[in-house]
Design a protein around this nucleic acid. Structure first.
Lengths: 290, 290
DNA sequence: ACTGTCATGAAAAGAAATTTTCAGCGGATG
DNA sequence: CATCCGCTGAAAATTTCTTTTCATGACAGT
């Protein structure tokens, strides 16, 4: 066979370029939860992928197999190889990585963090924050520290598209008092502050509270001192097998919040995004293509 | 179903006593190399076991299954459970949250992304990139787009602490040519570019290549055009139940890389970090947790 | 030895899967 | 705007799989 030593996954990847729309759709479906997704009959996988059975036949033939049975036989071999390997037995998803590889240890840790964080997290808090952030009458201010500044920026960039009146505070704390001065009652200050808490953060939070602003804090399980001044606090697990803390779960919550806000204000956001897209497109028109 | 919570293997074992000779022979064959041996058609497994197909039907019905397809469907589920990872098992997650809550839907999606990404990811690529980034003789340049700029910044912030000669390119592409001009042969350009690929990224990558720089690209499963110019490419799953793509898994890989680099250059890094800590303490910008 | 019971597989019948055919549709091109 | 080309899925044709039927043979009890 021409596809001798490569895995079906490899073959699919190497053919992605020559696949048509429906075939790509099928390929995605197969690669998702690979290789188990290819265990069933041609009818089943066609249905799962939302394409017709002829499309399946055409694709597997395009990939170099004689027909669907040929394709499936190959998949079965791969499943067998995977399962029969005692090392891979429990860790198929990291099959390429030795058990002690940093990727695996990281994945374990992050999974634990996510599970723990979600267990501890009150969905009412999440929903309340989403609701606060959806209120367009409130100004939003984002601030983070040395490391968490990137998270604040990420959150800010998205919210800026979704709604007006969003402000990103510089990571440099010397300019913070000026921002606090501009806050109005009902505005929201979103603080990212994990260990090695920044002292200035408390001053900023205090000033914001005096101006009547609500405070939302993303911190770690030990809690930023600024959390005492907050209306809502997200305590996120940040432990990783590393000298550094992990921001993965924090980013996870940020993204979920972005979607929650976007979803609850979709009607208002839609037009806004369209306009913005137009602006981006226009800007690109004036540049030379690469 | 009567055989609800037990595995097929359990069911077979508990029925061994009531099986006839040919059925026992079949059962042995199935348990040998279980559960993969049950992947094929009824004809196949009958042949492998040296019995007739009616024997197979009779046995699976004796075991409590409706017929062979029922039996096989169950086996497929077990194969899937065996192959899939702990990540997929989210039973106890977010107990406080309804199954349809955005947090849970997001968690599902991110878990899938992580699993898929790790499955597709070659650890050799990861290790090669970690090794490249550990080479202090090479200058590092980080660049991202509108959304991914925050990721580039996050990566940069950490690497800046760990090693010298790191540069963060502005998100504004107009300044990129100047950076390219400063690159030397062997320098590394780390590009973050997910869909809505930025056209200028290709120009930058081309310019960097001309200067002899190596390119590492973080992109999505569809692949940034800049990936064609890259020495190494990370294809990360970014799908989320959201109007926006998810950067969680990308951040995961970034953090793992940070640790890998830090770990491989610890001796050199240690002193550097101590010095930096001292500087931070001195300026009282950062405090220890209280 | 006779008889009844049960296991077993060959073969037929039935069901389902796989492949092929073909018409419609939509985007590309002139 | 017309034409072409290739993708796509409905449906038919074909192949394969699954189940049922039934004849045979082994064995236990009479």
């Amino acid at each position: 066979m021409t596809t001798a030593s490569k895995t079906v996954s490899d073959v699919i990847h190497s053919h992605l370029g020559v696949l048509t729309r429906a075939e790509k759709q099928l390929a995605e479906s197969l690669l998702d939860n690979y290789p188990v997704s290819g265990l069933g009959s041609i009818t089943t996988i066609a249905e799962n992928a939302g394409v017709s059975t002829p499309t399946v036949v055409r694709m597997v033939q395009k990939l170099g197999f004689k027909g669907y049975p040929d394709f499936q036989a190959r998949l079965h071999l791969e499943v067998e190889a995977t399962i029969s390997n005692p090392i891979a037995k429990h860790d198929r998803w990291a099959q390429n990585a030795p058990g002690t590889h940093i990727l695996n240890r990281f994945a374990d840790a992050i999974m634990g963090n996510l599970r723990q964080t979600l267990t501890d997290l009150d969905t009412a808090t999440f929903d309340s924050v989403a609701s606060l952030l959806s209120d367009r009458k409130r100004g939003l201010y984002f601030v983070g520290g040395r490391i968490t500044g990137a998270l604040a920026e990420y959150f800010f960039t998205h919210m800026q598209v979704i709604r007006p009146a969003t402000t990103l505070l510089s990571s440099n704390s010397s300019s913070w008092p000026q921002y606090a001065l501009n806050m109005n009652a009902g505005d929201i200050l979103i603080i990212f502050d994990i260990r090695r808490y920044e002292q200035e953060m408390v001053s900023l939070a205090t000033a914001a509270r005096k101006r009547g602003a609500e405070i939302v804090v993303f911190t770690d399980q030990w809690g930023s001192p600024a959390a005492k001044l907050a209306r809502h606090t997200f305590r996120v697990r940040i432990e990783a097998p590393s000298a550094w803390d992990s921001s993965v779960v924090t980013l996870f919550i940020v993204e979920a919040l972005i979607e929650a806000v976007q979803n609850s204000t979709w009607d208002e956001t839609k037009e806004r995004m369209k306009t913005l897209e137009g602006l981006f497109e226009q800007t690109k028109l004036f540049r030379k293509p690469g």
